[in-house]
């Protein structure tokens, strides 16, 4: 999490606000203020973030045992028994592989489009920038469930205004539905990512381009050699968020179950966890969500490490 987690150097290098002589009592006075500022968020964070994670981990270590067929169910410590079930669960790992394939295709397309549109908005070739920026961003205001319902109708052959496409290709069949869902996700998030990259572009001082232009660099060259490297932190940030989002995919495919029989109840890892909670088998569901969280961490950090090694900021 380089650009997220690194502390701001300007802060840490600065001397404390009060002089050294009165620093101690001053600190004491601020301690109360700090507590008042931090505690409300801190308590809620502990209750609704840290406690559930801890609870998940504990739950995942237990198994439900019955004495005889009709005996009362009892939770006993089972060690890693649930995790053995997770690792031998074929459909779960198929769904993880499905999401990795989904992400490997959808994330580059979405961010490539977002980057291209941000560069075009910044290129000076466009009139009506305000309009385009807003038009591309509007889908972000559409809830994932609603976007999926809307596109589900658009893909349905009887209703769709896209008849030329829907009459030749079944967009809801087992082979295509994953990419139909990818299109929904892309539609919602391109504008959001574009805006983050565009904001980064806007903060580049224009003198940087003028020097390059004097050296005879064209528009493409400036975009490739100056703009893209400078907005790399924003691209890395959006990629990490996209990786997390992909592994957590739930509402869009869950909605698509109404439109396509090809979407099963274990189509994505999150859907598996959710369907287990409905049975309910919370211990196994907890083990699944712990594994999913760890997978997310590993993939996000692997990506960050890979970009760091290539000398990116």
């Amino acid at each position: 999490m380089t650009q997220l987690a690194t502390t701001d150097p300007t802060r840490t290098e600065q001397p404390p606000p009060t002089g050294p002589a009165i620093r101690r009592p001053g600190r004491h006075r601020y301690a109360r203020a700090v507590a008042v500022f931090v505690a409300p968020f801190g308590i809620l964070f502990a209750l609704f973030y840290l406690a559930p994670i801890g609870y998940s981990i504990v739950q995942s270590l237990y198994v439900v045992k019955r004495t005889g067929t009709y005996g009362p169910a009892q939770e006993v410590f089972g060690g890693l028994a649930q995790y053995r079930l997770v690792f031998s669960d074929g459909p779960f790992w198929t769904s993880v592989a499905r999401m990795v394939a989904f992400g490997a295709v959808q994330v580059p397309i979405m961010l490539g489009l977002a980057l291209a549109l941000a560069l075009l908005l910044d290129s000076g070739l466009i009139t009506g920038r305000r309009f385009f920026r807003l038009a591309f961003f509007v889908p972000y205001a559409v809830p994932g469930v609603v976007a999926a319902i809307m596109w589900g109708f658009l893909y349905s052959p009887q209703l769709s205004p896209l008849k030329p496409i829907t009459s030749t290709v079944d967009l809801l069949s087992a082979d295509t539905v994953l990419w139909s869902i990818a299109n929904v996700v892309t539609w919602v998030y391109v504008g959001y990512n574009m805006l983050i990259i565009y904001s980064a572009l806007m903060s580049i001082p224009t003198e940087m381009y003028e020097a390059a232009r004097l050296d005879g660099a064209g528009r493409m060259r400036i975009a490739w050699s100056i703009k893209i490297p400078l907005v790399m932190p924003a691209i890395v940030l959006t990629t990490v968020f996209s990786i997390i989002g992909t592994l957590q995919l739930l509402s869009e495919p869950q909605v698509f179950r109404s439109f396509s029989s090809a979407v099963s109840s274990t189509y994505t890892p999150n859907m598996t966890v959710f369907s287990l909670s409905a049975i309910p088998n919370f211990n196994l569901a907890a083990a699944f969500s712990v594994v999913l969280a760890l997978t997310t961490f590993v993939l996000s950090f692997a990506f960050l490490k890979a970009t760091q090694r290539r000398g990116m900021p």
Binding site: P52, Q59, Q248, L250, A286, S289, A293
Partner: peptide, 9 residues
């Protein structure tokens, strides 16, 4: 942190 890792517990 994934949302399911929180919602369920």
């Amino acid at each position: 942190v994934p949302a399911t890792a929180l919602a369920l517990p």
